[in-house]
Design a protein around this nucleic acid. Sequence first.
DNA 1: ACTGAAAGGGCTCGCGC
DNA 2: GCGCGAGCCCTTTCAGT
Lengths: 178, 178
Amino acid sequence: MDHNIWDKHDQSKGFRQDEQMSAIDRTDRRILALLSKNARMSNKELAGEVGLSPSSVHERTRRLTDTGLLAGAHAQVDLDRLGLSLRALLFVQMSEHEKTNLDRFIRETLRIPEVRAAWMISGRFDSLVEIVTRDTTHLHRVVVEQFSSREEIHRIETSIVFDGDRQYDLSSTLDLIP
Amino acid sequence: MDHNIWDKHDQSKGFRQDEQMSAIDRTDRRILALLSKNARMSNKELAGEVGLSPSSVHERTRRLTDTGLLAGAHAQVDLDRLGLSLRALLFVQMSEHEKTNLDRFIRETLRIPEVRAAWMISGRFDSLVEIVTRDTTHLHRVVVEQFSSREEIHRIETSIVFDGDRQYDLSSTLDLIP
DNA sequence: ACTGAAAGGGCTCGCGC
DNA sequence: GCGCGAGCCCTTTCAGT
């Protein structure tokens, strides 16, 4: 098997609202920030960066993983160069009586191969869905077959993503925590 | 320093439209899919999964990294439990004469600590920005100070994200490539 | 392109502080 | 909670097919 501590993490999502929030010091924050930039950084290099011994850092990442603050690590794949170069957003309005089933809608939507993200939101629209497709033909087929045809959907507005990106580096974001 | 091949990748984004797209076989797809689920999977375990020797898989990940298809790996941090539990989307309309500067707007926006993603899009809005904040006070301050006050912004609609998630696992998505 | 073996080094864990 | 050290095992390379 694998000796990587990241895999030993208990995936149970169950934690109560009133559960005490895990305490995090500056070093833990540094570790999370460094791994958000490069999740394949070795434990030894991580230790060098934060100024502790490898064994101390190892213990810290184990704790961060066990408490669920480190929830995983994911490769960033260039879908653009693989032929999935048309990115789009679907702004979805649900039928009025279906709004109680949004949970199920989100879960089912996330299983569609083209879907990269699906959110339930407030405001003018009820849901936002991010998808990747090969071209306009493919985009049209997905929208019609997987969305427009659904009973629970009232209306969809489709937006093409021209540019922009995600911020993977959490260094500055983590400085916002209390 | 570090011996991880993922770090040796030349980060240059320059590739021409007419450049030939890298050829990918089923094994490469499996590797990308596995690493999208768990980027910390060891090379040995990866080899076991795809049925090749560690050295072969090592050479393949090196090639995928060098060609830029494997663009990095990032830790997934539970910002919710760290006190950044209010997620929001900002639907932005730019002032008419500022639409040529969207590039700059996106780049600058991505430097704001609260911003997780910023896109330039078609349709009713010109830009979509995803942010994380501690609470409604914090959200309000960010919207007013970093966005509403900007000359180049005409109008903003703010949506709260109630639920939903990103799909990190690219297994099914990668089956869409030609 | 894949394999296997050998060298080198990181990971892991028990122990003392 | 931290650091050290020893053994284990993984990573990495390269010659051979």
